[in-house]
Design a protein around this nucleic acid. Sequence first.
RNA 1: GGGUCUGUAGCUCAGUCGGAUAGAGCAACGGCCUUCUAAGCCGUUUGUCGGGGGUUCAAAUCCCUCCAGGCUCGCCA
Length: 580
Amino acid sequence: MDFINEIAALIKIDGADDRDVRTTVTVAADSAFGDYSLPCFRFAKTLKKPPAEIAAALQREISSDLPEFIERVDAAGGYLNFTLDKSFFARSVMNGIFEKGADYGASDDGAGRTVCIDFSSINIAKPFHIGHLGTTVIGAALCRIFKKLGYNVVGINHLGDFGTQFGKLITAYKLWGDRDDIERRGLRALADIYVRFHKEEEENPALVAVAREWFLKIERGDSEALELFGFFKDVTMKEVEKTYVRLGVSFDSYAGESFYSDKMQPVIDELRQKKLLTVSDGASIVDLSEYGMPPCLILRNDGASLYATRDLATIFYRKKAYGFDKCLYVVAYQQNLHFKQVFKVVELMGYPFYKDLIHVAYGMVSLEDGAMSTRKGNMVYLSDVLDKAKEKALKIIAEKSPDLKDAEDAAEAVGTGAVIFGALINNRIKDNVFSYDKILNFDGETGPYLQYTCARCNSVLEKAGVRISYDKIRGIEASFSDGTESFNSRHIAGGEAYELVKLLGKYPEILRSAMKNYEPSLVTRYLVDTAQSFNRFYIADKILDGDVSVKAARVVLTAAVMSVIKNGFEIIGVKPVERM
RNA sequence: GGGUCUGUAGCUCAGUCGGAUAGAGCAACGGCCUUCUAAGCCGUUUGUCGGGGGUUCAAAUCCCUCCAGGCUCGCCA
C-alpha cells in the first residue's frame, strides 16, 4: 500500500488542496522522528498561524481517530510526524515479497505499450572494448526494468556495419590479411590490419581511393566484397556473442546501418516535399538556425547519405515495424547535438511522436593516459577485463574459501559482477577513467559485496534448514512460526531489522523511479543500501538465536532480503552466488 | 566564441521537482572471528556543498552571474 497517499488523505487543511498536502508529506529525515513527516511551514501564511500551532492542532484532530496502520502522531516544532504501526507495516511488506517473489516490484503500468531500446550498437570488425560497457549494461538493465513494469520491450543492437571503413578493411585484408590468423585471433587480428592501414595511408594516400572503390563494390553487391564483409561480420558476431553471454545480455534485433541503406530515399523525398531541405555549399541540409542549432546534414555534396539520414530512416522504420510508444537511444553524450537535431527534424516533419524519442546519454570512458583510439590500437578489450576480474576472484577464493566447489563458476559470477556493478553504480552521465585497480576492487560498495551478502543470506537459510527459491518462499513464514503469532513488532524490535523492512518496502518505488529517470544506478545503489542494512542487522541481531518465534521472524526477514537482492540482481544483470 | 553537461570530504561518488544535524565507499588509524561466510561489522578523523548575488519561514537543491573542466558546433559515425 502507498503510505504517503494514505497519510495525506488523513490531513485536512483549509485553503490547501489535497495535492499540496500530498506533495508536502515526506519520509522522515530520521527514524527517531517517525516514519513520515508533514512540514507545516508552508501552510502558515494561509492559515495565519505559526507552524508549530498548526502541527499541534492537526495532531489533536488526527489522533482522535487513528487508522490501524498508524501507531502515533506527534507534533514536533513545525513538523507533524507519523509513526507507522510496525507490525502492520512489516506484515504488509513481507506479504508483498512472499506472495510475489520474482514478481515483487513488477506492475502492469506499461501493458499494451512498446518501447524500443537502442543500445550497445557495436561496430563490425572493431574491438568490443570498455567504451561499450556502459551502453551495453545500461541498455540491458533498462530493457529489464521496462519489461518488469509491463512494457513490451524491443532491444536493438544497431550494428555499425556500413561505411568507407569497410572498404579500408578489405583493402588492408587484400594487402596483408591472413584468413587463418583472423579466424584464430578474431577482432584483434582485424584491428591489427586496420591500424596498419591507417599507418600506411599516411605515406600512401592512394590507399584511400582503393578503399572507396571497395566500399562501392559492397554497395553494388560485388560478390567478393560481400563475401569478405560477411566473413568479417561472422568473425565479429561470434566473438562478441561470447562477451554478451558473459554479461547476460541479449537482443531482439540486430538491424544495423546497412539494413537502412535502402530505406533512406523515401525520407529524403518527404523532406524535399515538405520543403525542409535546402542546399548549402552543395550539401542538402535542414536549416535549424531558428531553433539555435547548427543545420542537420542530410546529403553530402556528392549526394551520399549521412549519419542523420540513416537515423531518420531508422526512426520511421521502427515506428512502423514496432509501433513504439517510446524509443530510447542509449548513446554517449558526445552525440547530444546529433540527437537533438534529428528529433527536431522529425518534429518539423509534423510527427508528434518526436516527443517519444529519447536520448539516454551516458558519460565517456577514458584511459588513465588519455582517450582510447581504435586507429591507434590504444584500448582495453572488454573480454580482457572480464578475464582479469575472474582471475582475481579465483585468487581470492583460493585464499578465503579453498574448499569451495564450483570455484570457476563463482569466480566468473563475481568477476563479471564486479565489472557490471562498476558500470551501473554511478549516475550514467558521469565520466569514467578506467583503471584495473578500481574495477578489480572487491571491497566496500562493489558487486562482490552484494554477492557476498547474498551468500551470507543463503548460508543462514541453509543452517536454518530452509531452501529458498521464488516458488517456495511463500510457505516459509508458516513453517517457522509457532502458529500463534505472525510477524509482529517484537520480532523486529531491533532498529536494524525495522530499517531493513522499510528498505525492502521501497523496492517497487525504486524500480518505477529508475524507469522514469532511465537510471539503472538507482537500483544498484538501492541494493547497496539494502546489503549494508542487512549486514548491520546480521551483526546486531543474531538470526538463529532467541525464542522460536523471534528466530522464525528473523529467518523470514533474511529470506525476504535474499529474494529482493536476487530480484534486483536480475535487473542489473549480476548473478547471485550461493557460496563464495 | 555559441550550445550543453559536470563541479559536494585527500580520492570515487550519493543526496538536487526546497524541509529537521550534508551521507556512503576507498584511503589512514584503532577495535571485533569460543563457530549464523571477517569479500564483513563498529569506532576515530576530514566539508567556504566551485565563487558571488537573489527568491524563501527554510537553499547542496530554485533563479541570475562569474570561475574551472569535459563534450560538441557541415559534408566521419
